[in-house]
Design a protein around this nucleic acid. Structure first.
Lengths: 348, 348
DNA sequence: GACGTCATTGTGAGCGCTAACAATTCACGG
DNA sequence: CCGTGAATTGTTAGCGCTCACAATGACGTC
């Protein structure tokens, strides 16, 4: 056992043991310059001996700072949110902040409000809300909170400071790539209407087609899951031979379902139908066939979000004005091109 | 703007406004029974009007409780850790606790120690360490910390209280399933030696073969990534026709790589070689072919871990003794069986 | 040798809350 | 009409830290 049941030592205890005042102990801990080396050493020894650790709550009360940020997220087992969460925590840690997370199953006005309350009671100095559902954005703007909030994935229209990957651009990259490869039309399997990212991807897809003077074909909807992609894929298979040669799917998981459905229907990818996805999850390179997709730089999203939130906390930036946009990147693989095997190599 | 720059109101401010003492305000907030209804209403109105929120630090200082738990994890973008994290946070929230997470890139004695220090300075009352690497377990046992720690995924041998899915059983289920399907031998692509889960899965695989009087074939190693599975799959393809008909792969991501390599080598799954995985990631049902795998119940892992940690914090359980084990479950799909399409359905 | 200056250390007053106890009020029976 | 106990409210003392300021001592200067 390494933790004892006794009341932990206080700064005053350490001070007594070292023969100094509590304030000197505080100075040593705070790296204050004006402490004699000999004194500092004595204090450090006492700290070590007694296993002293500064009390977080007392410190926070006196300084009025908790150095803790909150994050509200949903669907955190998916690659995108999980990656964003990771990047946020890492960026916050680099700035000396701790992160408290609330992971919601569903993001609604009510759950969001509860989450913010909870984080507020937890003493956070600011919150990042990963809120891709459009309903959540409005909630954010209306809700009262005693700290700044930065939204991620809400799209850039809001009155709330936000950080976003340019989804429209991503969709244009994918759609444009398919057109450039010689496909006359590109179909689209979209995400739920309620998601801003889904809307932006539809817009980018449609804009690209219209710019090329192509009439957008029927729009299909899924719910991001592989199963919904599978179902849509079954429908798409029915259009092969009737003008369907290319599909832009709004995320990689649905694209996986589409690939399976096409395969089962005897449709070859990419020879009969080319498929592109969105997200570049780690698995997509190994799909059958490897998937062309759009990569989002979640690490940058995390860093920029934390930077913006800290600016807001320190009062360096007027809130409401700041919108950060990040460029995605097209990753071309076999699902839209003749087959390319990986360079072979001996097993590690 | 919903947050003001002014110093937020204190309990005393509210008390003054409501014409009561600060203690009465505290009673109202704490749902103390002995407050007259009329008084309570007056206080609540004042709270509402002033937008008052209890100060977390002051409360924590006075009660000596932060109601915050810490979690240390690594590889949090993978399905397993992400799911565990989600379950942990949800379970903690249900108990009225907030969760502070530290996500490490690599889990070593040093990074783990830093993470615990950080959480300690953050005032957590206890920590869950998702520490599947064996090196981390030793570190945990040695490190000093002023709060209880529960390990997850370390295997049940340790002196640290821990919660684990029975990996050995999972491996026996998968291997046994392949033997029962008529395969004479089952090969194994293992995870890194440094991971306890990888070790347990190897042991379960080997034990099953030996119990059936089969000599275990050569063991292959990967690093959990699809790419390492791909490389191993290329090697495995060379053994087709020389006794290889079934492979148990230590996780689904590597299995995905194996499937691709076999496909590229012209080896059919499951007709020529059956493949089983481990984890049941959401994608695995849509692999080519859909993957037989072992499902771990992360939600239960989360709940049991939090319950154990809270027991330790409240002093209800002697630490060091508690080992919780959770049973995994075999999920049979087409990769080890004749092809089974999903029931078709109209797109949603 | 008195005095100013700087480095070093100590003192006292909160930070905003809860817990323990004290005080007051009220209802009701004798 | 007073005593008694329960219900209700107030008072006081910390929780363990940091901040502002005061005090001390060493050192150099004129």
């Amino acid at each position: 056992m390494t933790h004892s049941q006794l009341r932990p030592p206080t700064m005053a205890d350490v001070a007594r043991q070292a023969g100094v005042s509590h304030q000197t102990v505080s100075r040593v801990l705070g790296d204050h310059p004006n402490v004699r080396d000999e004194t500092r050493a004595r204090v450090l020894r006492a700290i070590e001996e007694m296993g002293y650790r500064r009390n977080f709550s007392a410190r926070a009360l006196a300084t009025r700072r908790t150095r803790t940020l909150g994050v509200v997220a949903s669907n955190t087992t998916l690659y995108g949110p999980a990656s964003t969460l990771f990047a946020l925590e890492e960026a916050a840690r680099a700035e000396g902040y701790l992160v408290s997370t609330v992971s919601l199953r569903r993001l609604t006005m009510e759950t969001l409000s509860e989450a913010l309350d909870r984080l507020s009671e937890g003493g956070v100095e600011g919150v990042i809300a990963i809120a891709p559902q459009r309903s959540a954005v409005e909630a954010l703007a209306e809700l009262r909170h005693p700290f700044p909030v930065v939204a991620v994935g809400t799209g850039s229209g809001a009155e709330v400071p936000s950080v976003n990957v340019d989804q429209n651009l991503g969709a244009r990259l994918a759609t444009g790539h398919l057109l450039a490869a010689g496909h006359r039309r590109v179909w689209h399997l979209a995400g739920p209407e309620d998601w801003q990212e889904a809307v932006d991807r539809v817009d980018g897809w449609r804009a690209t087609l219209e710019a090329a003077d192509v009439e957008p074909p029927m729009l299909l909807r899924g719910d991001w899951s592989p199963l919904s992609g599978y179902r849509a894929g079954q429908e798409l298979a029915g259009w092969v031979g009737r003008g369907l040669t290319a599909v832009f799917v709004a995320n990689d998981q649905m694209a996986l379902g589409v690939l399976r459905a096409l395969r089962e229907a005897g449709v070859r990818t990419p020879q009969d139908v080319a498929v592109a996805g969105f997200d570049d999850i780690p698995e997509s390179e190994f799909f059958a066939p490897p998937l062309t997709t759009v990569r989002q730089d979640f690490a940058t999203v995390g860093k920029r979000s934390i930077a913006l939130l800290l600016d807001l906390i320190e009062g360096r930036t007027p809130s409401g004005t700041s919108q950060v946009s990040i460029e995605p990147q097209l990753v071309v693989r076999a699902s839209t091109f003749p087959y390319l095997p990986l360079p072979g190599a001996a097993p590690g």
